[in-house]
Design a protein around this nucleic acid. Structure first.
Lengths: 107, 107
DNA sequence: ATTTTTTAATTACTTTATGTAAGTATCATA
DNA sequence: TATGATACTTACATAAAGTAATTAAAAAAT
């Protein structure tokens, strides 16, 4: 066996995608910018606390932009950066795998 | 409890890949069968405890086979099932994304 | 006969992540 | 004054992951 550890990049990449809810959030944003409440509705088992945590992380990682529109009431939109959108192939691959292998009623 | 709403398959898929270390373990196994100690060496920041937990989960999910060779000392090999190997495209997509966007020294 | 070695874990304990329910801040309208 | 909408935050509880030491089985070494 070779004894070299994996490239740190992969560990970093998997430490992002390997967090609960991250993949689903980014997948939702692939459809276009979304508000906090949109994401909450689209992913109903994701709590406001964890959604807030994830959006902060994704913003810091530069995968997501947070834009404030000073309307009344204030409107905040989350959208993918180029780096975030570039996960599209990855997430589509997950989707294809899920459709092939996971058997559940799916409307 | 386990009410999956959006597309249940998709939530289930991310509940597997969205666990820490799962992606890296499967990626290692894409290179061929590996022993417990091989995986430990390949993923040095992964503890024996969590590796054992993950291998049990992946075996139950039918993504990984566990084969016991009654040699002395006993040899146990983990290999991907067809379902597990079929994550190759997904993991290669993650790898491509990591290589494009994550900048780290990588020997 | 007892100790050591090897592989593949397990155990006890600590720390971090996530879940749950309620509360906060801001501004506008009734 | 009270209520409603949006986007969170807070306090607390449980689940998952990290750490270090220990175990089991069998052969080999002392």
């Amino acid at each position: 066996m070779n004894k070299f550890s994996l490239c740190p990049r992969y560990e970093i990449a998997f430490s992002i995608l390997g967090k609960k809810w991250t993949g689903l959030i980014i997948r939702c944003l692939l459809d276009g910018p979304k508000r906090f409440s949109d994401l909450s509705e689209l992913i109903p088992h994701l709590s406001a606390k964890v959604l807030a945590d994830r959006m902060k992380e994704l913003e810091q990682l530069k995968l997501v932009n947070r834009t404030v529109y000073p309307e009344i009431p204030v409107k905040i939109e989350y959208s993918l950066t180029e780096q975030g959108r570039d996960l599209e192939q990855t997430l589509h691959a997950v989707q294809a795998w899920a459709e092939k292998w996971i058997t559940v009623d799916c409307k």
